[in-house]
Simulated scan of single mutants.
Amino acid sequence: MIDLLTVHRSPHRPEEMVRGAGRVLARYDHRTQDSGNVSWIVRTPEADLFVKTAGEDASPPDGAPTPLLDHAARVALLRTAVEISRTVDHPVLARLRNVAETPTGPMLIYDRAPGRLVGVPSEHRQDPGSSYRRFAAAEPGIRLAVFDQLLDAHRALAAAGWVACDLYDGCLMVDLATTRLTLIDLDTYQRGAFPNGMGTMFGSSRFMAPEEFEFGATIDARTTVFTLGRLICHFGTGLTEDLADFCGGGAAGRVIARAARPAREDRFASVGEFADAWSTARSSTRP
């Protein structure tokens, strides 16, 4: 039996290690994503774990999509995820338990997050039973509690210098029974402001700021503010995008409207400023 929580280097490939650690509950590869990463949920004697790797340094299987990034770039992003875990201690961030070096790069071993992933493939977004629709229709108190956690976590990330990239509903694991949020897949976050070197950056266009489509534009805290505002608007209005439907009331709705303004200079200058304004607005509506 392989103990994934204590092994730090192994000559074995990740698939062998995972299968030697316990019962594989799920495998995520080219059949469910185009990143090139390969991940597993594995039940071990200690706990249920989520294991993430950069996949193989090889051509994709026949019929599989070509990964968006090559193997070396995927490895670099996993090391960014490790750096985030080491620089920011916040209960909303997925808990990284161990990193094991293997012949194909690092294996990141996390606690399995409770709840369900809010983001679903576009063809499932109309399904009322999907986690996407269920979160959007959840009681206002549940959604607001999740938004509070989302902003508080990003306050901590921003304080450590991290700028959000590719933040979308596929990063949100929500347990509706406990209102607990877990943030996952923050590998593409970057330390400090940087220029848009791609033109159209990674992300979901539903939540991306205008500068994420403009080559050479500055990506910084105001960009993070926009994406957070769009996420909260999208789900806080029950998907209508009309702030008259916002579950947090008018004052909080006005804060969200400012966060998601197209012009950078019209938004909050920092995540902390946004979070403070949100907290003040929320306090004014609590009984």
Results as ranks from 00 to 15, higher is better:
117 L>R: 14
117 L>I: 11
117 L>P: 09
118 V>K: 04
118 V>G: 06
119 G>D: 04
119 G>F: 06
119 G>M: 03
119 G>W: 07
119 G>Q: 08
119 G>S: 07
120 V>C: 05
120 V>M: 05
120 V>K: 05
120 V>L: 06
122 S>K: 13
122 S>N: 12
122 S>W: 14
122 S>L: 13
122 S>Y: 15
123 E>C: 07
123 E>W: 15
123 E>Y: 15
123 E>T: 12
124 H>W: 12
124 H>L: 14
124 H>V: 02
124 H>Y: 13
124 H>S: 13
124 H>M: 09
126 Q>P: 00
126 Q>D: 15
127 D>S: 14
127 D>H: 12
128 P>N: 07
129 G>N: 15
129 G>K: 10
129 G>C: 09
130 S>R: 11
130 S>I: 11
130 S>L: 10
132 Y>A: 05
132 Y>G: 03
132 Y>M: 02
133 R>S: 02
133 R>I: 00
133 R>P: 06
134 R>Y: 14
134 R>L: 15
135 F>M: 05
135 F>Y: 13
135 F>W: 08
136 A>W: 11
136 A>C: 11
137 A>I: 02
137 A>K: 09
137 A>W: 06
138 A>M: 09
138 A>T: 12
138 A>F: 11
139 E>V: 11
139 E>C: 03
139 E>L: 13
140 P>Y: 02
141 G>Y: 08
141 G>F: 06
141 G>C: 07
141 G>W: 08
142 I>D: 12
142 I>R: 15
142 I>F: 05
142 I>H: 15
142 I>P: 01
143 R>Y: 12
143 R>D: 13
143 R>T: 14
143 R>F: 08
143 R>C: 13
144 L>K: 03
144 L>H: 00
144 L>V: 07
144 L>M: 12
145 A>C: 03
145 A>E: 14
145 A>L: 04
145 A>P: 01
146 V>Q: 04
146 V>A: 04
147 F>Y: 08
147 F>T: 11
147 F>C: 10
148 D>C: 13
148 D>W: 06
149 Q>I: 04
149 Q>F: 03
149 Q>M: 04
149 Q>A: 15
150 L>V: 08
150 L>Q: 09
150 L>E: 13
150 L>I: 08
151 L>H: 04
151 L>F: 08
151 L>G: 07
151 L>P: 04
151 L>V: 02
151 L>A: 06
152 D>K: 03
152 D>Q: 06
152 D>F: 00
153 A>D: 04
153 A>R: 05
154 H>I: 01
154 H>G: 04
154 H>V: 02
154 H>M: 05
155 R>P: 00
155 R>I: 00
155 R>H: 07
155 R>N: 06
156 A>H: 11
157 L>I: 01
157 L>S: 05
158 A>H: 02
158 A>G: 03
159 A>P: 02
159 A>S: 12
159 A>Q: 11
159 A>N: 07
159 A>F: 01
159 A>V: 00
160 A>R: 05
160 A>K: 01
160 A>Y: 00
161 G>M: 01
161 G>F: 01
161 G>A: 01
161 G>P: 01
161 G>N: 00
161 G>Y: 03
